[in-house]
């Protein structure tokens, strides 16, 4: 267990930096985690992060990359529903980085 400090408040994370309590998540925490991942958050990044939060809220899991890619394409159009687009936004993988920034656990099956 580790903690991160964001604007005077501390948050628990696991040893890889994933937030323990997803209810504590907010935009400041997301920005902080993104900085640690060298990701500069743009509107396109937020679109994916917010989508992941919605998905988790509805299904109680973080989607596998293949499932996320398909769902993003359905929602935001084919030009965004491909792995090239998602890996451009999150170079170390949408599952690893976007979920972490969104305050979600790692997707099931992602080691």
């Amino acid at each position: 267990m580790a903690t991160i400090e964001v604007s005077g408040k501390s948050y628990e994370t696991d040893e890889e930096g994933y937030l323990i309590n997803l209810a504590e998540w907010n935009k400041d925490v997301a920005d902080y985690i993104a900085k640690g991942e060298n990701v500069n958050m743009t509107d396109n990044h937020w679109e994916v992060v917010n989508f992941l939060r919605e998905y988790y809220d509805e299904y109680q899991i973080a989607p596998a990359v293949r499932v996320l890619t398909k769902a993003i394409g359905k929602r935001f159009g084919a030009e965004k529903g491909n792995s090239q687009y998602l890996y451009d936004l999150f170079p170390y993988g949408p599952a690893k980085q976007a979920c972490k920034i969104a305050g979600l656990p790692k997707p099931t099956g992602c080691v």
Binding site: E58, Y59, Q60, I61, V67, K70
Partner: peptide, 10 residues
């Protein structure tokens, strides 16, 4: 239980 509804997407 909500996860069973995600299976279609898989």
């Amino acid at each position: 239980s909500p996860t069973y509804r995600a299976l279609e997407g898989y």
